[in-house]
Structures are given as structure tokens and as C-alpha cells.
Write a protein that binds this DNA or RNA. Structure first.
Lengths: 340, 340
DNA sequence: TCAAAATCGGAAAACGATTTACATCAAGTC
DNA sequence: GACTTGATGTAAATCGTTTTCCGATTTTGA
């Protein structure tokens, strides 16, 4: 099929009997053009189905209305929601986003960065698919191009970083458990080297202390983030001489595994043991009972990052701060609280 | 921070004492330039850290080395893996990809298509996040721009469509069940209006017939794709006077729910009932027992689509066929088969 | 040895917009 | 009537490449 070559500003000018400069003014709603001419030009543009060539425009303007997004784990379970936020924010302002996957490999990151720079993106987002952690500078000097980090942070350079408020989320969850009358709160966590795991544990401790409830170290277990780990560690905790009456699972996968263990032991949820997860994965609502959980505000984080970048681009100013986005409580039925 | 303006081909030419045309030739490895000049130019380019401006190049060449990818569900559970395949294929050939989310809304799709067209992408991918289904033409005439459909198909226009071989996958799974000695195979399916559900059921019937094993309609249930549905329907099937000795669950979520039901009933998996899922979601490996399942070849589908589009772009030819990509069996422990 | 062919490098014209500086004309102003 | 002012519209430069000639020099072939 032949690719029809589209009309240029020149064609429109000719048809409307004006100069290209005038057409440009009309297209950009610039002043100093009479209504009569404006109408004539618009009619001509319409008739020729004219759309300005963004490449040509970018060449002159040195702004492309394009963002680059590099992630180290495109298939990560949290990646897409954050990307959706970014994409939403970007497309609302007429920006497009380039999607790049580095697989966490610096050489690939550099390669992607090179083409993004060559293609003159207006700003760059570096998005980690892993649980919040620290990382260094981009694999390539960006020459002053605005950049924002999501789900990770750096102190190597002054740059805005967006991460969830894990600590606050854990506080919220613990308060909820306290509210429904639990006092012996077991914690099944992810690996200790994740900052998210540390923050969440600290949040539990904080909320307990705040309420004057003693914290029992015997009730916390560090493991992996997924089902099998939750299953095994829940068994461990429930086998204790003085078992917990609530389980704070630091991921929904862990909670799902723990739920299996509890079912297996004939322990009722939430009557005997209240269960709360973290992440608000989509399977959480389909557990038995539906899982109360702390949501990761992924879409909001993405939106925030996108908007931050967009204002940095338009204003030319970067506010290099670490922002922790609140993690809301999603109450379902695994803690026995009334549904609102 | 001041944005450093980078060197142009002109600067390089000046430093090397040649004309811009010659620099261009060197950068593009064109013939008719002496080794001596080439070296001088390369040295100059190196020294100035010169990188050709892709925008300028695109303007002249009317090729951008860019693909547009529009999905109707960025957060869909299968979307990311397909996107990874596309991104892989694209970046291997030096192409970038624009990410657009239409939310299944034609107006948004049209808006995205407009900017993609304006930005002169070389080709477009339309990716559905939902289970394979039929859709119509793009929301905007593409004027001969190459396009490929993933995870959906259309007969409205001649265009390549990439979908999984659901039928074949179901055949494979059923044969496996037969192989481990099961004869009364229950099926827990998704909603009947999904073509994937239809194809998979047909696959089971086909494999049964092929093996001369009678197909019992009483053993099939249509439901939803997720856990709670699997849980309820597994209970239903196991309550039958003559219950199945195997359950083919048409999603891993369904299988997970079914597994809960079986555990609850004290039915051993795989000893009493063999269980097989579909999709190969990442939680499948963490079930108890780890779930044997039929994998959706999502990354391969993405790669295939990407490569198809790239050759269409370079060769200028589109082969408009519907391709069904095979779904491999992933054997774990829920069917009792030996692990290879 | 001489013509034909190949090689090397450059000048200049694209590509399709935006923008600056300027020309033109009508309307006020004193 | 001369002068300023403001509104319209245009010619031309610009963005940074690629590409098409074309002239000059060298190599090849008979």
C-alpha cells in the first residue's frame, strides 16, 4: 500500500493564499491575524487534513514533548501501575513516553540513555521494579536534563525521588489491628536487607509503642516475599506456646500463604487470628476471606513523578527532594472490622 | 543547571578541517572517503563528544526508528510480558517504542494515534490486555503505516495478528492428564463468551476424543477467571456423585482457588486429584504443590510482533496472517508427573 | 600514452516547521 | 497634513542532518 505523503504548512499556505508564516500563527493560536484570514487558513487546513509535522517542529523548537522512561524490571509486579501513572500524567499534557527496559544492566541503561539523549527527550524517569532501594547516578551524565527517580532513591545527585511511605503504611496497619482488639501481633516480613522490610517493621514497633502495647520480638519472622515463605512462617508462629492473635504480612503473597496455613490448622480468620497484608495486589480481594491490606500507592507515585518532571521541564527548576507517598488502608474482611 | 548544548556536525567538520558532508559520510560509514580523512573526522567527533541529532536526521530521512505501542489495559496481568517482548525486539534493532494507554476508549486511542502519526513513528502495535478477542480497525486511518495486532485479531483489514494457541495448549494439557492416568477430567473455565475459553474447552474435547476417552459434559463449569470462582466451582465438581480425578483449570487463579477447595475437602493433590492450570502466572510455582500449568507465550508473542513489524518497515511488505503461538506445558508437581 | 572510470571531497539544496525583522496600511492624534 | 501607533502579513533565516550533484584528482585498461 502506498504511503500517502501528507500536506505541509506550505500546501495549506498556498491553498489559503497566504504565507507559511501566517499558517504557523494560526495553528499556534498566535495573535496578529485577522479573523477572516484565520478562518480561511483553518478551512484550508481542514480540507487538506493538515497536521503539523512534530519532527520539524521539534528540530526548530528543541523541545520534543517526549519523556524517556527506563525501568530495570518491566515485568515486575509493581512496574505497570507506576507506569500507568506516569503515562497518565504525560498524556494529559500532550507528552509521549519512550519505554525502555534495562534489565538492571548498566550497559543497557547506558545504551538506552544514549538514544534517549540523541532523540532529545525533554526529561527522564528512572523507575525501579524492585522494592524501594538505593541506587547511584544514571549510567550516563545527563547534561542537565531533568530526571526523577521512582521506587528508589539516590543521594549521589540532587534529584527528586518518589517512594511509598512504608513506615507510615505499617503504622496504619498496626493501628487497625489494635483497633479491632488485637494485642499479640505477629509479623511475617520479607528479607531483612530490603529497606521496605526494615521500614515496615519499624512502623509496627512505632505503632505498638505509641499504644503502649509491648512488642514481642519472638513474634517476628524475616523470610521471602512470596507464598511459600508466608505459609511456612505462619506455621512457625502459630506453633509457638503463646501464638499471636494477629498476623501482619508484609506482602499479599505472604498473606496468601499464611492464609493457607491458617486454614490448614483450622484457625478461623478473622475470628481467631486477624490477618493483614501489604501491597493490595489484585488477588487480595479474591482470597477467603477477602484480604484487608495496605495499598502501595503506585499509580499516584507514577502520576506524581510525571507531574514533577513536567513542571521541571516547563519551569526549568528541579526540587531535589525525597517524597514518601502515603499507603492507604484497604479494609476488607480478614481483620473483622466493619466495612464502611 | 545549564543545559550544555552539544556539538553539531558542523563543529566536527570545522575541527577536522573538512565539510559537513564528509562528516556525515564518515558517521554513516559511507564509501568514498579516505582512511586518513576518516580517522581525522573520527578523532574530532570523539574529542567533541559528538552524537548526531536524531531529530534532524529523522526530518531528512523521514524514518524515526520509533514504534508506537497502544494498549487498552496497561495494568493487565499479561500486558507487561508482551510489552517486554516488543521492547526487546525493538531495541535489538535500535528502535525505541512509545507507550500509550487507551483504557479501551476509542477517543483516547484516536488521540494517541494522532500524536504517533504526527511524531512520524515507523509502525504501530495494537496490544490488547484482555483475553484474545476480536476488534475492529484502528480508531484512525493509518495511511499505509505498518501495524500489527497482539492478543486480539481483526478481519476488518489485512493485518498480522499474534495470538496464543489456546486450543493447542488445552490439547497439550489434556494429553498430559491422560498420560498420568486420569480419565475423568473436570474443566473449570472462564466466561463462555471469551474466545480463549471456547478454544480451550474445544482443545480438551479434541484430546479426549483423540484418545478415545469419553467426554462428560457434567464435568465442565463455566465461571470467572479468578480465585473465588475456582474455589466455588471446584467444590461443586467434587460434590458430584461421580467426581473427577483431575481438574483442568483454565487460569492459574482458578487453579489456586480450586486448590484451596481441595485442601479444605482433604483431597490430596496430585494423589487423589491432579490439577493443571493455564497461564503460568508467577504465583503458580509457589502453590502447594507447585502448579503444573500451560504457559502463555507472552514474551515470544511480543518479540514476534515486534520482529514482524520491523521487517514490514524495512521491507515494505505486510503479510496479513493470523499467527497462533504454541503454549508449552510447564510441569511441576500438581499432576504427579516426574520432573524431567 | 591517452581516454575512461573510479575515488575523494565540497557546495548547496532539501526536510517542514518557527521566528525575527520588516513592509504595508489604516486609524488616531495634535 | 505630518506623525505616531497598532494591526496584518511576508521574506528569509534557522534548526542539524542527509543527499545530490559536480569538479578535481587518481587509477585503470588497452
Amino acid at each position: 500500500m502506498k504511503r500517502s505523503t501528507s500536506a505541509t504548512i506550505h500546501d495549506v499556505a498556498q491553498l489559503a493564499g497566504v504565507s507559511p508564516a501566517t499558517v504557523s500563527k494560526v495553528m499556534n493560536h498566535a495573535p496578529h491575524v485577522s479573523d477572516e484570514t484565520r478562518a480561511r487558513v483553518q478551512a484550508a487546513a481542514q480540507k487538506l487534513n493538515f497536521r503539523p509535522n512534530r519532527i520539524a517542529r521539534s528540530l526548530k523548537m528543541s523541545r520534543t514533548a517526549t519523556l524517556g522512561l527506563i525501568t530495570d524490571d518491566l515485568e515486575g509486579v509493581f512496574t505497570m501501575s507506576m507506569m500507568r501513572g506516569v503515562e497518565d500524567a504525560a498524556s494529559e499534557q500532550g507528552f509521549s513516553v519512550f519505554l525502555c527496559n534495562s534489565y538492571g544492566d548498566m550497559a543497557r541503561e547506558r545504551a538506552h540513555l544514549e538514544v534517549l539523549l540523541d532523540k532529545k527527550v525533554d526529561g527522564i524517569i528512572l523507575l525501579s521494579g524492585y522494592r524501594v532501594r538505593q541506587r547511584g547516578a544514571p549510567a550516563l551524565p545527563l547534561g542537565g536534563l531533568p530526571v526523577v527517580y521512582i521506587y528508589q532513591y539516590t543521594h549521589d545527585m540532587p534529584v527528586p525521588c518518589i517512594i511509598p511511605d512504608d513506615f507510615g503504611g505499617a503504622v496504619t496497619g498496626t493501628r487497625h489491628l489494635l483497633l479491632v482488639g488485637r494485642r499479640r501481633i505477629g509479623v511475617i516480613n520479607g528479607p531483612a536487607h530490603y529497606e521496605a522490610a526494615q521500614q515496615r517493621l519499624a512502623g509496627v514497633q512505632h505503632a505498638l509503642q505509641e499504644a503502649g502495647v509491648p512488642f514481642d520480638h519472638a513474634l517476628v519472622r524475616m523470610g521471602k516475599w512470596y507464598e511459600t515463605s508466608g505459609y511456612a512462617l505462619a506455621h512457625e508462629l502459630m506453633a509457638l506456646p503463646n501464638p499471636p492473635d494477629a498476623l501482619f504480612c508484609m506482602s499479599d503473597s505472604i498473606a496468601s500463604g499464611a492464609l493457607s496455613a491458617l486454614h490448614e490448622l483450622g484457625i478461623r480468620v478473622p475470628e481467631d487470628v486477624a490477618l493483614i497484608g501489604f501491597d493490595n495486589r489484585n488477588f487480595a480481594a479474591h482470597q477467603r476471606p477477602p484480604l484487608t491490606t495496605i495499598a502501595l500507592p503506585l499509580v499516584e507515585m507514577g502520576r506524581l513523578a510525571g507531574n514533577l518532571l513536567l513542571t521541571a521541564i516547563s519551569e526549568g527548576t528541579e526540587s531535589a527532594e525525597l517524597q514518601r507517598v502515603p499507603c492507604p488502608l484497604i479494609v476488607r474482611q480478614s481483620c473483622g472490622a466493619e466495612l464502611a
